[in-house]
Amino acid sequence: MKPEVTTDIKWDVQLRKGTLELVILAALKGRHLYGLELLNLLHSFETTKITEGTLYPLMDRLKRDGVVAANWQQTGDERPRKYYNLTAAGEEKLLSFTTRWRTSVADIEYLLTNPGPAKIAQPKQQ
């Protein structure tokens, strides 16, 4: 494995640790998904691939924290599946995470596009 590839993977892992909850809440926004569907959805993006072993314990924790609700459903002969959706508290949390995330991205972006030695003219307007 090339060194830069390893660095990328490590970076992804670090970043995901902090953003995983936001990712899950965002994925469930307006959706009603069971574990496998949610996992497949996350696997369809480059940086949000997580394992089953990470997803399920996390979903259990989010359910206990009251940000997602879960209920078993069975249609016809299909296997019963546990569906997740956001609760009101979850929607609220997603909203506040989203604001912080966008501020953070804007801050980093600002630093990236305004390298030294020039001084930053004035405190950035939020």
Binding site: E52, Y56, K82
Partner: peptide, 28 residues
């Protein structure tokens, strides 16, 4: 119950790259 349901669901939709081994590996 949830993990069992996932394993059987995932097996039914398995592709060339997913099989029981990879599913269980994913769970650790």
């Amino acid at each position: 119950r949830e993990i069992e349901s996932h394993i059987y669901d995932a097996l039914e939709t398995q592709t060339e790259t997913t099989n029981l081994e990879t599913i269980l590996d994913g769970f650790g």
